[in-house]
Simulated scan of single mutants.
Amino acid sequence: MEVIRLQYPNEFKVNEDEQIAVALGFFDGLHIGHQEVINTMIEIAEKKGLKKSVLTFDPHPSVVLSQKQQRTTYITPLPVKEKMLEEYGIDYLFVVNFSSEFAQLSPDTFVKDYLIGSNVKEVIAGFDFSYGYMGKGSVATLEQYSEFNITSIVQKEDDGEKISTTRIRELLSEDKLEEANRLLGRSYSIEGFVVQGEKRGRTIGFPTANIEPSYKYFLPSLGVYAVTLTIGSDPTVYKGVASIGVKPTFHENHKVTIEVHIIDYDRTIYGETVTVYWEHFIRHELKFDGLDALIEAIQEDKDKAIELLKDK
């Protein structure tokens, strides 16, 4: 997959001999609704002998367009999104820098400079895709162009509610991890590297790996989770119990950290890259009255995690 980063004004031109099918969207999370858009694009492209492509944006448009609700953390940060799209067999990933200048483009200019100018013959987008200044462009306006065909993907719902990145972020914040994973079509994951911590866990019999996320991830709610994880390029899946929190038993107003106790594992892995898969929510973060209460709770969390992960 070739990643092509586009600025405004767009000066990129594809090979004149190549005709392209493109899926349009921000695609944070690549949830099951996004997957339908991309799989439809792939099906059309293969049927018509077109190059398969995705056009997305970076950063999230809210960074430019909204003062109050800027989205600066992601379910799938751009490098993760790139890896996932490559697994689809995409030929081109177009990443458009969503800048203040780009946000001022008329819908027609966007279409002519970024779609028609790139020899796009098939456009696939969700029913609510918008583009151009003030979001005035829509699927309906795309249908007015004769240079390409437009395929609109109808709203995908779960229990009568639209499947969306916003909904999944809400679920992750509300301790509804299993539901979020169902809408994602996979377990939510965070990639990071293992850093030195306070090493308090090993003194109470539960050594932990302190995980520094590699990118600006949206974090699930503070609490304790049953997780699986992989280490480096080793495909072995390990089981663990993880906490996201501020360690209130020991600190006040401390920064949020991610710690994972890997079950039946005793190697030192500082500096290793790990991917943590968030499988089940166990409980909220609590402040305990002393070490004995904390140790008892951690053992209960570990036992619960083993039970929840028995089929993993």
Rank of each mutant, 00 (worst) to 15 (best):
P61L: 01
V63A: 11
V64N: 00
V64Y: 06
S66D: 15
K68H: 10
K68N: 12
Q70G: 05
T72Q: 10
P77K: 13
P77Q: 10
P79H: 12
V80A: 03
V80Q: 12
K81D: 00
K81Q: 08
E82P: 04
E82K: 15
E86C: 08
E87L: 13
E87Y: 11
I90F: 09
D91K: 10
L93A: 03
V95S: 11
V95Q: 08
V95K: 14
V96W: 13
N97L: 08
N97D: 09
N97E: 13
N97F: 09
N97V: 06
F98K: 08
S99G: 08
S100W: 12
E101G: 11
E101S: 14
F102H: 09
Q104H: 11
L105C: 06
D108A: 14
D108E: 15
D108Q: 15
D108C: 06
T109F: 01
F110T: 01
F110N: 06
D113P: 04
D113Y: 06
D113E: 15
Y114A: 02
Y114W: 07
G117I: 12
G117Y: 11
N119C: 07
N119Y: 15
V123M: 05
V123Q: 01
A125F: 10
A125Y: 09
G126N: 06
F127R: 00
D128Q: 11
S130R: 14
Y133F: 15
Y133P: 01
M134S: 11
G135C: 04
K136T: 01
G137H: 12
S138V: 02
S138D: 00
S138M: 03
V139E: 00
A140F: 10
Q144F: 02
Q144K: 15
S146W: 12
E147P: 10
N149T: 12
I150K: 15
S152Q: 13
S152G: 02
S152K: 15
S152M: 10
S152L: 07
V154D: 10
V154T: 13
Q155C: 09
E157M: 12
D158A: 14
D159R: 15
D159Q: 14
D159S: 13
G160M: 11
I163P: 06
S164I: 05
T165C: 06
T166K: 06
T166S: 12
T166F: 02
R167K: 13
R167C: 01
R167F: 03
I168A: 02
L172A: 00
E174F: 12
K176F: 03
E178N: 13
A180G: 08
